[in-house]
């Protein structure tokens, strides 16, 4: 079964392998800063992969998934505030909290669809945002400075330990998702996206499957947020600002929302552009280097308009059926 997975999802495997060896590159050329950029790519890529379970595979446009990242991050921050430093425990807390929140929010929000679903998910995310802003005890607006969590087997302050912890979780999530989207559950989820009323007519209650998908995606975003807190050594409501939910959606669309690897590809391109464009513009057109978004925005729109299926779609694969989709 694992061998079978190697033959499919080629792009995802290539990205994971490159990520595994990336630190060799940075240490050879003495570019430790880039480890930091790539950790951010992995964290946002993981969250976007989680969101894409509902967005790309389930057809539910949830506009509030950064809230789950925020809850995960605060699970780390608040646990540490009370002296619970164990990172594994914090990851578990994040998963459980986001799972429960996912059930509650999903149960209410999934009664709606279309624009109402977008608005209601955004509304719940804003509620959570302002809830954390109001928590004076944990810094409110200003947030909470924290140390990297204690993962027992490896001290995150040793060089590269955090990098490989994030990589390990990302790889685990990726492999689980490779199995998930081809499983009976995953196939039903994609069938619901294709035609909900036919799935219902086949005797399947769409809500059950959509809710399960929603909870899985919330948990993955929570794990990403929990690690994000250690990476940033700081937690504030900023991590769950609605613009981050927007970023996650842009990342997915940019990379290609019908592909498992799409969100990772999107995160790589999105964050590299964010990193490189200002410098590039500084050299080429200094007057607008502050406003690099002027270039970034149209670039995104171009990919969305002309590259149907995002960058993954552009990269090849005219195969569109559900079975073939997973080959890339």
């Amino acid at each position: 079964m694992v061998l079978d997975l190697f033959k499919k999802f080629t792009t995802l495997w290539i990205i994971l392998i490159v990520l595994a060896f990336f630190p060799i590159f940075t240490s050879t050329f003495d570019l430790p800063f880039w480890n930091d950029v790539v950790m951010r790519i992995m964290l946002l890529g993981m969250a976007a992969m989680g969101l894409n379970i509902v967005f790309g595979f389930g057809g539910m446009v949830s506009f509030g998934h950064a809230a789950f990242m925020g809850v995960g991050a605060y699970c780390a921050g608040i646990s540490q505030y009370y002296g619970l430093d164990n990172g594994w425990y914090q990851l578990l807390m994040s998963a459980v909290s986001c799972g429960i929140l996912g059930i509650l929010i999903g149960f209410l929000a999934l009664r709606t669809s279309g624009i109402y679903f977008i608005m209601i998910t955004l509304a719940f995310a804003q509620m959570l945002y302002f809830f954390f802003v109001s928590l004076e005890e944990f810094g409110g607006d200003d947030g909470l400075i924290m140390d990297r969590s204690d993962f027992i087997f490896f001290d995150l302050y040793e060089p590269l330990r955090l990098y490989y912890l994030i990589f390990f979780i990302l790889a685990t999530v990726s492999i689980m998702l490779m199995l998930l989207i081809r499983s009976r559950f995953g196939v039903i989820l994609q069938a619901i996206k294709s035609n909900e009323s036919r799935v219902e007519a086949m005797g399947l209650n769409p809500l059950k499957f959509k809710l399960t998908g929603y909870v899985i995606s919330a948990i993955i975003c929570g794990l990403s947020g929990c690690l994000f807190a250690s990476w940033q050594e700081f937690v504030s409501p900023d991590i769950m600002h609605w613009t981050r939910s927007g970023d996650l959606m842009i990342i997915i669309i940019l990379g290609g929302l019908t592909y498992l690897a799409g969100p990772l590809v999107g995160a790589i391109v999105f964050l590299l552009l964010e990193e490189l464009l200002p410098d590039l513009l500084h050299v080429l057109f200094p007057p607008i280097s502050e406003n690099w978004m002027i270039i970034f925005g149209p670039l995104l729109i171009a990919v969305v308009l002309f590259g149907k299926g995002g960058l993954m779609g552009v990269m090849g694969s005219k195969l569109k059926t559900a079975a073939n989709r997973e080959k890339t």
Partner: peptide
């Protein structure tokens, strides 16, 4: 009736 299965691929 076996719908909540998350690991084994369905189409094969």
């Amino acid at each position: 009736q076996e719908t909540f299965r998350f690991f084994r691929p369905a189409f094969s």
